[in-house]
Simulated scan of single mutants.
Amino acid sequence: MKATATAHPIQGLVKYHGIRDQELRTPYHDSISLCTAPSNSTTTVAFESDRAEDEYVIDGERVAGRGAERIRTVVDHVRERVGIDNRVRVESENNFPTNVGFGSSSSGFAALATALVEAAGLSLSRPEISTIARRGSTSAARAVTGGFSDLRAGNNDTDCRSRRLEVDFEDDVRIVGAVIPAYKETEAAHAEAEDSHMFEGRLAHVHGQLADMRDALGRGDFERTFEIAEHDTLSLAATTMTGPSGWVYWQPETLTVFETVRDLRSEGVPVYFSGDTGASIYVNTTAEYVDQVESAIADLGIETRVWQVGGPAQVRDADAALF
């Protein structure tokens, strides 16, 4: 009972903020994202009858504390579904910077859920697997279905699951990742979301943003899609900054990237910034302009990664196993 899976992290376009149900990790509102490739998390899972306790290892480090609790929540859900009590060994590796705002928890839990389902012998669709991954990280639901994905809010697994969207310009999208290595913890910001006086304001307008985003994606409107994502980035930051802890994730380099993107756009380059919780920034453009955009960000002295839209979580062959 062993399996390996790989998943790509997500870039939030209309991002969720705040968790309605802490156990199921159901959000207050819908969210839409795209996956970034070739960045990925690869996870191997084995149910072992002779093991005394679970073991979780990420990038060579044994996981304890809250991180282990989140992994155990997903593992226990699968054990309960199949009626087994075997302990598990889990090892995961990331090929991109983690805990800097590039969605490593989304790809990590998407790969974990996909590998667990395979190892346990369950036959589930990706939307069904997305409900399992969601228990570890809400955004992981969208990493399971991949591409441009839409997670609907709901009170149960029938309603709160991810689905992939068909988008005409998907193959033309390029993402320049501006790596700004300032450590962050997203879960803390979600925990106090309701305490921000801006939270009700975000809830009042986010449904309109979601409708506009679905319309733009359905019409194949690249510019409008990423214009909305840019504005949503600012809305999210306003909410996190006005919570009790006053989370300010941006660094001076973050603001410099914003200004560089706006300067490029004033010169006719189709380019837009977007950020999740963290200092690092996604710079969204097209295949035609990606070299120019990447050079402009690199000239700031900022490390860059170039990505395109990635597909769904995938079960890997046995020779890809990490142990």
Rank of each mutant, 00 (worst) to 15 (best):
residue 42 T to F: 03
residue 80 E to H: 12
residue 78 V to C: 05
residue 40 N to A: 15
residue 32 I to D: 04
residue 73 T to E: 14
residue 88 V to L: 01
residue 85 D to L: 09
residue 60 G to P: 06
residue 73 T to Y: 06
residue 78 V to L: 05
residue 68 A to C: 10
residue 45 V to C: 02
residue 31 S to K: 08
residue 32 I to Q: 04
residue 35 C to P: 02
residue 94 N to Y: 00
residue 92 S to D: 06
residue 34 L to K: 06
residue 97 P to V: 03
residue 86 N to Y: 10
residue 31 S to L: 10
residue 26 T to I: 05
residue 45 V to A: 00
residue 57 V to M: 11
residue 69 E to C: 07
residue 56 Y to P: 04
residue 68 A to W: 01
residue 31 S to H: 06
residue 88 V to D: 05
residue 72 R to T: 15
residue 56 Y to Q: 12
residue 36 T to W: 06
residue 45 V to K: 00
residue 100 V to P: 05
residue 95 N to D: 15
residue 29 H to E: 01
residue 88 V to S: 04
residue 32 I to E: 06
residue 49 S to I: 01
residue 70 R to L: 13
residue 52 A to I: 10
residue 93 E to Y: 12
residue 70 R to H: 08
residue 39 S to D: 14
residue 26 T to F: 09
residue 84 I to M: 11
residue 87 R to D: 11
residue 56 Y to F: 15
residue 72 R to C: 11
residue 35 C to L: 00
residue 32 I to M: 08
residue 96 F to P: 10
residue 43 T to Q: 05
residue 33 S to F: 02
residue 44 T to P: 02
residue 48 E to P: 02
residue 97 P to N: 05
residue 94 N to V: 00
residue 73 T to G: 13
residue 30 D to T: 05
residue 100 V to N: 12
residue 67 G to I: 01
residue 62 R to I: 09
residue 86 N to W: 10
residue 80 E to M: 03
residue 35 C to W: 00
residue 98 T to I: 15
residue 67 G to P: 01
residue 28 Y to D: 04
residue 47 F to D: 00
residue 29 H to T: 01
residue 41 S to I: 01
residue 77 H to I: 07
residue 71 I to D: 09
residue 34 L to M: 08
residue 37 A to Y: 08
residue 40 N to E: 14
residue 92 S to K: 11
residue 79 R to Q: 03
residue 80 E to L: 11
residue 59 D to V: 00
residue 78 V to W: 01
residue 49 S to G: 08
residue 40 N to Y: 14
residue 77 H to N: 12
residue 51 R to S: 03
residue 41 S to D: 01
residue 56 Y to C: 12
residue 60 G to T: 04
residue 36 T to E: 11
residue 63 V to G: 02
residue 83 G to C: 09
residue 33 S to P: 02
residue 31 S to D: 07
residue 34 L to F: 02
residue 64 A to S: 14
residue 58 I to Y: 11
residue 76 D to S: 14
residue 90 V to T: 13
residue 57 V to T: 12
residue 26 T to P: 05
residue 31 S to R: 06
residue 97 P to Y: 04
residue 26 T to L: 04
residue 74 V to R: 11
residue 75 V to R: 10
residue 80 E to Y: 08
residue 89 R to K: 13
residue 87 R to G: 06
residue 66 R to G: 09
residue 70 R to I: 03
residue 87 R to I: 09
residue 31 S to Y: 07
residue 75 V to D: 03
residue 44 T to E: 00
residue 99 N to S: 15
residue 44 T to V: 03
residue 42 T to P: 01
residue 64 A to T: 15
residue 49 S to T: 08
residue 44 T to S: 12
residue 66 R to W: 12
residue 33 S to Q: 02
residue 43 T to C: 14
residue 83 G to F: 06
residue 30 D to F: 03
residue 77 H to V: 12
residue 28 Y to H: 13
residue 29 H to F: 15
residue 83 G to Q: 02
residue 54 D to I: 05
residue 73 T to C: 09
residue 74 V to P: 07
residue 73 T to R: 15
residue 80 E to D: 13
residue 84 I to P: 02
residue 49 S to P: 08
residue 68 A to G: 09
residue 49 S to Q: 13
residue 95 N to H: 12
residue 56 Y to V: 15
residue 84 I to N: 07
residue 74 V to N: 04
residue 98 T to Q: 10
residue 68 A to S: 11
